[in-house]
Amino acid sequence: MDPQLREVAQLFERFKAAFVRKDFNTCATLLTQLKVLLTKFPSLPPSFQPTPNASEELTIARQIYEHAVVLSVKIEDQEAFERDFSQLKPYYTDTCNIIPSSPEEYPILGLNLLRLLVQNRIAEFHTELELLPPSALENPCINHAVELEQSFMEGAYNRIFNARQAVPHETYVYFMDLLAKTVRDEIAGCSEKAYDYLTINDAKKMFMFSSDQELSQYISEEHPEWEIRDGCVFFQKAKESQPWKEIPSFQLINQTLSYARELERIV
C-alpha cells in the first residue's frame, strides 16, 4: 500500500473514532489535516489522473467528504455544509466510470436539497433536481425533499410537520427543525390574511405550540400588532385597498406625453 494512502487511512480511522465518540472538535481538526493530505493525490478531481491507486484514493476521499458533510450538519454549520458538499459533488457526477457509486449518495443529495429548501433557494433546488436521473426520484431520501417542496408550495403545512416524524435519515432532523420555523412564519403570514380572528386554542394548534405562554411569546416577538382578548387572537387586517378616489394625474400625463412622442416618431 502506498505510504501516503496509508497515512490518510489511519488518520481517517481516528476521525471516525472521534466521530462515533461525538468529539466534534477533534473531528474538525483531523478533517483539516485530511483535506490537506488529499491534495497530494493526483487522481482526485479536477485532474483525475489514472494512477494505479486511483480507485482506492477516490473511494477514501469520497468517504472523507461524505463524513465532512454529515459533520457539518452535526455542528450545525450551514456554510461548511455548502463548501464540503461542493467538494463532494464531483465524486458523484464524474467518477461513476472509475468506482462504484456510494450508498450514501442519495441521502446526502437529499440532505442538500433539504438545505436549499430551508434556505429558500428554490431555483437552485430545481437546478439540482434536474441533474438527478428519473430513477433517483423514487429513492425515499430524494422523494422526501421533493414532496416537502410540493407541500410547501401548495401550503399543506401540516404535511410538513408530519414529515418530520418520518425522516429517512437521522441527519435530516436538524434541517427539518429549521424548516419548521420557516413554516411557522409562513402559517402566521397566511393566517393573518385568511382569518379575522382565531381562538387561542385553535391558534396554538395551528402554530404547533404546546403551551399558551409559547404562543403569546411568539406573538409578542414576531407579530406585536396582533391582539389577544376574550380568549381570541385578533389579526389586524390590513386596510382594504379602496377604489381610487383621485385620478393619478401625474402618471397619466407622463404616459400620454410618451404616446404623443412615439406617435410623432412614426408619422
Binding site: E154, I187, G189, S191, E192, K193, A194
Partner: peptide, 8 residues
Amino acid sequence: SIVSKAIR
C-alpha cells in the same frame, strides 16, 4: 392551510 395560502 391550502386555502389560507391561496388567500395570502
